[in-house]
Amino acid sequence: MVVLKIGGNVLNNPATLHEALDYFAGQVEPAVLVHGGGRRADEVLRSMNQQPRMIEGRRITDHATLDVVTMVYAGSINKHIVGQLQARGTNAIGLSGADGNAILATKRPVGKIDYGFAGDVVAVNAPLLDALLRLGLRPVLCPITHDRHGQLLNTNADTIANETARALAEAGHTVRLDYCFEFPGVMRDVNDPESVIDRLDPGKYAEYREDGVISGGMIPKLDNAFSAIAAGVDSVVIGSIQALRSGDGTRLRAS
Protein backbone atom coordinates (compact mmCIF):
# COMPACT_ATOMS: atom_id res chain seq x y z
CA MET A 1 0.00 0.00 0.00
CA VAL A 2 0.98 3.60 -0.53
CA VAL A 3 0.26 6.49 1.85
CA LEU A 4 0.95 9.84 0.18
CA LYS A 5 1.00 13.05 2.18
CA ILE A 6 0.87 16.38 0.36
CA GLY A 7 1.55 19.68 2.10
CA GLY A 8 0.42 23.27 1.90
CA ASN A 9 2.80 24.58 -0.75
CA VAL A 10 1.89 21.70 -3.06
CA LEU A 11 -1.79 22.47 -2.52
CA ASN A 12 -1.26 26.17 -3.25
CA ASN A 13 0.43 25.57 -6.60
CA PRO A 14 -2.16 24.31 -9.11
CA ALA A 15 0.42 22.82 -11.51
CA THR A 16 2.26 20.99 -8.71
CA LEU A 17 -0.99 19.79 -7.17
CA HIS A 18 -2.16 18.40 -10.50
CA GLU A 19 1.15 16.56 -10.89
CA ALA A 20 0.85 15.14 -7.36
CA LEU A 21 -2.71 13.98 -8.01
CA ASP A 22 -1.61 12.41 -11.29
CA TYR A 23 1.08 10.55 -9.33
CA PHE A 24 -1.45 9.38 -6.75
CA ALA A 25 -4.04 8.36 -9.34
CA GLY A 26 -1.36 6.42 -11.21
CA GLN A 27 -0.43 4.21 -8.26
CA VAL A 28 -1.02 0.54 -9.05
CA GLU A 29 -1.20 -0.40 -5.36
CA PRO A 30 -4.10 0.53 -3.05
CA ALA A 31 -3.42 4.08 -1.92
CA VAL A 32 -4.44 6.59 0.75
CA LEU A 33 -3.90 10.33 0.42
CA VAL A 34 -3.41 12.61 3.42
CA HIS A 35 -3.40 16.37 2.95
CA GLY A 36 -2.68 19.42 5.02
CA GLY A 37 -3.54 22.96 4.02
CA GLY A 38 -1.91 25.19 6.60
CA ARG A 39 -0.96 27.90 4.12
CA ARG A 40 -4.56 28.24 2.94
CA ALA A 41 -5.78 28.26 6.55
CA ASP A 42 -3.30 31.04 7.33
CA GLU A 43 -4.65 33.08 4.41
CA VAL A 44 -8.22 32.71 5.65
CA LEU A 45 -7.25 33.57 9.22
CA ARG A 46 -5.46 36.74 8.09
CA SER A 47 -8.45 37.72 5.95
CA MET A 48 -10.45 37.59 9.21
CA ASN A 49 -7.85 39.81 10.96
CA GLN A 50 -6.52 36.87 12.99
CA GLN A 51 -2.82 36.13 13.22
CA PRO A 52 -1.81 32.46 12.88
CA ARG A 53 0.34 31.24 15.75
CA MET A 54 3.00 28.54 15.31
CA ILE A 55 5.64 27.10 17.65
CA GLU A 56 8.30 24.78 16.18
CA GLY A 57 6.11 24.11 13.17
CA ARG A 58 3.00 23.26 15.23
CA ARG A 59 -0.14 25.39 15.18
CA ILE A 60 -1.78 26.92 18.25
CA THR A 61 -5.49 26.17 17.76
CA ASP A 62 -7.96 28.34 19.68
CA HIS A 63 -11.75 28.23 19.14
CA ALA A 64 -11.73 30.59 16.17
CA THR A 65 -8.78 28.84 14.54
CA LEU A 66 -10.48 25.45 14.95
CA ASP A 67 -13.54 26.74 13.08
CA VAL A 68 -11.33 27.99 10.23
CA VAL A 69 -9.17 24.89 9.87
CA THR A 70 -12.25 22.64 9.95
CA MET A 71 -13.82 24.70 7.18
CA VAL A 72 -10.62 24.76 5.11
CA TYR A 73 -9.27 21.25 5.67
CA ALA A 74 -12.45 19.15 5.86
CA GLY A 75 -14.39 21.38 3.48
CA SER A 76 -12.90 23.26 0.56
CA ILE A 77 -9.51 21.53 0.24
CA ASN A 78 -10.72 17.99 0.86
CA LYS A 79 -13.61 18.20 -1.58
CA HIS A 80 -11.50 19.94 -4.22
CA ILE A 81 -9.00 17.07 -4.09
CA VAL A 82 -11.76 14.45 -4.22
CA GLY A 83 -13.29 16.17 -7.24
CA GLN A 84 -9.95 16.35 -9.02
CA LEU A 85 -9.30 12.67 -8.39
CA GLN A 86 -12.74 11.73 -9.68
CA ALA A 87 -11.87 13.62 -12.88
CA ARG A 88 -8.83 11.33 -13.18
CA GLY A 89 -10.94 8.20 -12.91
CA THR A 90 -9.95 7.58 -9.28
CA ASN A 91 -12.93 6.82 -7.07
CA ALA A 92 -11.87 8.87 -4.04
CA ILE A 93 -13.77 9.38 -0.80
CA GLY A 94 -13.01 12.31 1.50
CA LEU A 95 -12.93 11.73 5.24
CA SER A 96 -12.31 13.68 8.40
CA GLY A 97 -11.35 11.75 11.50
CA ALA A 98 -14.96 11.84 12.69
CA ASP A 99 -16.30 10.20 9.51
CA GLY A 100 -16.62 6.49 10.15
CA ASN A 101 -14.61 7.03 13.34
CA ALA A 102 -11.61 7.10 10.99
CA ILE A 103 -9.19 8.80 13.38
CA LEU A 104 -9.71 8.99 17.12
CA ALA A 105 -7.66 11.56 19.04
CA THR A 106 -7.36 13.20 22.42
CA LYS A 107 -6.85 16.87 23.19
CA ARG A 108 -3.17 17.52 23.82
CA PRO A 109 -2.51 18.13 27.53
CA VAL A 110 -1.33 21.59 28.51
CA GLY A 111 2.38 21.54 29.33
CA LYS A 112 4.94 24.27 28.79
CA ILE A 113 2.88 25.21 25.74
CA ASP A 114 -0.91 25.27 25.44
CA TYR A 115 -1.66 24.13 21.88
CA GLY A 116 -5.39 24.62 22.35
CA PHE A 117 -7.61 22.24 20.40
CA ALA A 118 -4.72 20.22 19.02
CA GLY A 119 -5.32 16.49 18.81
CA ASP A 120 -2.90 13.65 19.48
CA VAL A 121 -3.88 10.49 17.62
CA VAL A 122 -5.13 7.59 19.73
CA ALA A 123 -6.13 5.20 16.95
CA VAL A 124 -6.58 4.99 13.18
CA ASN A 125 -9.45 2.80 12.00
CA ALA A 126 -7.41 0.49 9.77
CA PRO A 127 -10.32 -1.96 9.20
CA LEU A 128 -12.40 0.93 7.80
CA LEU A 129 -9.61 2.06 5.46
CA ASP A 130 -8.93 -1.52 4.44
CA ALA A 131 -12.62 -2.09 3.67
CA LEU A 132 -12.82 1.08 1.57
CA LEU A 133 -9.68 0.11 -0.33
CA ARG A 134 -11.07 -3.37 -1.00
CA LEU A 135 -14.18 -1.71 -2.47
CA GLY A 136 -11.93 0.15 -4.90
CA LEU A 137 -12.23 3.48 -3.08
CA ARG A 138 -9.22 5.64 -2.26
CA PRO A 139 -9.56 7.50 1.05
CA VAL A 140 -8.53 11.16 1.19
CA LEU A 141 -7.89 12.09 4.83
CA CYS A 142 -7.82 15.63 6.18
CA PRO A 143 -6.17 16.49 9.52
CA ILE A 144 -9.37 17.04 11.50
CA THR A 145 -9.86 14.34 14.14
CA HIS A 146 -12.36 13.79 16.97
CA ASP A 147 -12.41 12.65 20.58
CA ARG A 148 -15.64 10.57 20.47
CA HIS A 149 -17.28 13.14 22.77
CA GLY A 150 -18.28 15.58 20.06
CA GLN A 151 -15.11 17.65 20.06
CA LEU A 152 -13.27 18.11 16.79
CA LEU A 153 -9.50 18.54 17.01
CA ASN A 154 -6.78 19.88 14.72
CA THR A 155 -4.03 17.32 14.20
CA ASN A 156 -0.74 17.68 12.36
CA ALA A 157 -1.16 16.20 8.86
CA ASP A 158 2.29 14.58 8.96
CA THR A 159 1.18 12.82 12.14
CA ILE A 160 -2.00 11.64 10.40
CA ALA A 161 0.09 10.22 7.54
CA ASN A 162 2.48 8.53 9.95
CA GLU A 163 -0.26 7.01 12.11
CA THR A 164 -2.20 5.85 9.05
CA ALA A 165 0.86 4.15 7.59
CA ARG A 166 1.63 2.55 10.97
CA ALA A 167 -1.93 1.27 11.41
CA LEU A 168 -1.96 -0.29 7.94
CA ALA A 169 1.47 -1.84 8.54
CA GLU A 170 0.31 -3.28 11.86
CA ALA A 171 -2.71 -4.73 10.01
CA GLY A 172 -0.28 -6.78 7.93
CA HIS A 173 0.26 -4.62 4.86
CA THR A 174 3.56 -3.62 3.32
CA VAL A 175 3.37 0.16 3.35
CA ARG A 176 5.37 2.88 1.62
CA LEU A 177 4.97 6.38 3.07
CA ASP A 178 5.70 9.30 0.74
CA TYR A 179 5.92 12.84 2.09
CA CYS A 180 5.48 15.25 -0.83
CA PHE A 181 6.38 18.92 -0.35
CA GLU A 182 7.99 21.74 -2.33
CA PHE A 183 11.66 20.85 -1.81
CA PRO A 184 13.65 18.07 -3.53
CA GLY A 185 14.31 16.46 -0.15
CA VAL A 186 15.74 17.27 3.28
CA MET A 187 18.53 19.77 2.58
CA ARG A 188 21.63 20.83 4.49
CA ASP A 189 21.11 24.34 3.09
CA VAL A 190 17.52 25.38 2.32
CA ASN A 191 18.83 27.77 -0.33
CA ASP A 192 20.77 25.08 -2.19
CA PRO A 193 18.71 22.43 -4.01
CA GLU A 194 21.93 20.47 -4.58
CA SER A 195 22.38 19.93 -0.83
CA VAL A 196 19.76 17.18 -0.52
CA ILE A 197 20.56 14.53 2.09
CA ASP A 198 19.84 11.32 0.18
CA ARG A 199 19.98 9.01 3.24
CA LEU A 200 19.14 9.85 6.84
CA ASP A 201 19.21 7.72 9.98
CA PRO A 202 18.19 8.65 13.56
CA GLY A 203 21.76 9.39 14.69
CA LYS A 204 22.50 11.71 11.80
CA TYR A 205 19.11 13.38 12.24
CA ALA A 206 19.87 14.13 15.90
CA GLU A 207 23.22 15.59 14.88
CA TYR A 208 21.72 17.82 12.18
CA ARG A 209 19.00 18.98 14.56
CA GLU A 210 21.49 19.83 17.30
CA ASP A 211 23.58 21.84 14.82
CA GLY A 212 20.52 23.70 13.50
CA VAL A 213 20.88 22.22 10.01
CA ILE A 214 17.37 20.78 10.40
CA SER A 215 14.88 23.04 12.16
CA GLY A 216 11.36 24.48 12.15
CA GLY A 217 8.60 22.53 10.43
CA MET A 218 11.01 19.84 9.26
CA ILE A 219 11.39 18.62 12.86
CA PRO A 220 7.85 17.27 13.37
CA LYS A 221 7.91 15.86 9.82
CA LEU A 222 11.06 13.84 10.50
CA ASP A 223 9.96 12.89 14.01
CA ASN A 224 6.85 11.38 12.49
CA ALA A 225 8.75 9.71 9.66
CA PHE A 226 11.24 7.98 11.96
CA SER A 227 8.38 6.94 14.23
CA ALA A 228 6.76 5.25 11.23
CA ILE A 229 9.95 3.39 10.33
CA ALA A 230 10.35 2.20 13.93
CA ALA A 231 6.75 0.95 13.92
CA GLY A 232 7.21 -1.27 10.88
CA VAL A 233 6.45 0.94 7.87
CA ASP A 234 8.51 -0.50 5.03
CA SER A 235 9.94 2.73 3.61
CA VAL A 236 9.65 6.51 3.95
CA VAL A 237 10.67 8.97 1.24
CA ILE A 238 10.57 12.77 1.53
CA GLY A 239 10.78 15.05 -1.49
CA SER A 240 9.08 17.06 -4.19
CA ILE A 241 6.65 15.39 -6.56
CA GLN A 242 9.38 15.42 -9.21
CA ALA A 243 11.78 13.69 -6.79
CA LEU A 244 9.20 11.08 -5.81
CA ARG A 245 8.41 10.29 -9.43
CA SER A 246 12.08 9.88 -10.31
CA GLY A 247 13.01 7.83 -7.24
CA ASP A 248 15.05 10.63 -5.66
CA GLY A 249 14.41 12.62 -2.46
CA THR A 250 15.54 11.75 1.06
CA ARG A 251 15.16 8.11 2.04
CA LEU A 252 14.94 7.31 5.75
CA ARG A 253 16.44 4.24 7.32
CA ALA A 254 16.35 2.80 10.83
CA SER A 255 20.12 2.75 11.38
Rank of each mutant, 00 (worst) to 15 (best):
P139A: 11
I93E: 06
A64Y: 06
R58W: 07
D147P: 09
L137I: 00
P52D: 09
Y208A: 00
G97N: 09
A102G: 12
H80W: 02
R199V: 05
R199E: 10
V190H: 10
V82I: 15
P139I: 03
P52M: 09
D147T: 06
P202A: 12
N13T: 11
T90C: 15
P109H: 14
D201I: 02
L104D: 10
N13C: 08
R53S: 13
L137T: 01
I241M: 08
V213S: 01
D130G: 05
P52H: 05
C142I: 12
R134I: 00
G172I: 12
L132W: 06
A102S: 15
M1A: 07
I229H: 03
R188V: 12
P139S: 05
A31C: 15
R166H: 06
E194D: 15
D201Q: 07
D234N: 11
Y115H: 15
D99E: 15
S195N: 12
Q86N: 14
A15C: 04
L244A: 06
S76K: 03
S76T: 01
K204W: 01
T90R: 14
K221Y: 03
A105E: 03
Y115G: 11
D201M: 02
V196R: 02
Y208Q: 07
V236L: 08
A131H: 04
N49M: 13
E43T: 14
H63G: 13
A41T: 03
L141A: 07
G136P: 05
S76W: 00
H149D: 15
D234P: 01
S227E: 14
G185D: 10
D147W: 00
V186T: 12
S235V: 08
G216E: 13
K221I: 03
L137P: 05
R251S: 05
R148S: 14
S240T: 06
R134F: 00
V82L: 11
L66Q: 05
K204L: 11
Y23L: 13
V68P: 01
D120K: 06
T70R: 11
A118R: 15
A102N: 05
K221F: 03
L152C: 05
L11Q: 09
R138Q: 11
E170F: 08
A25I: 06
D223V: 07
L45V: 00
A131C: 05
M48Q: 14
M1Y: 03
P202T: 14
S96A: 15
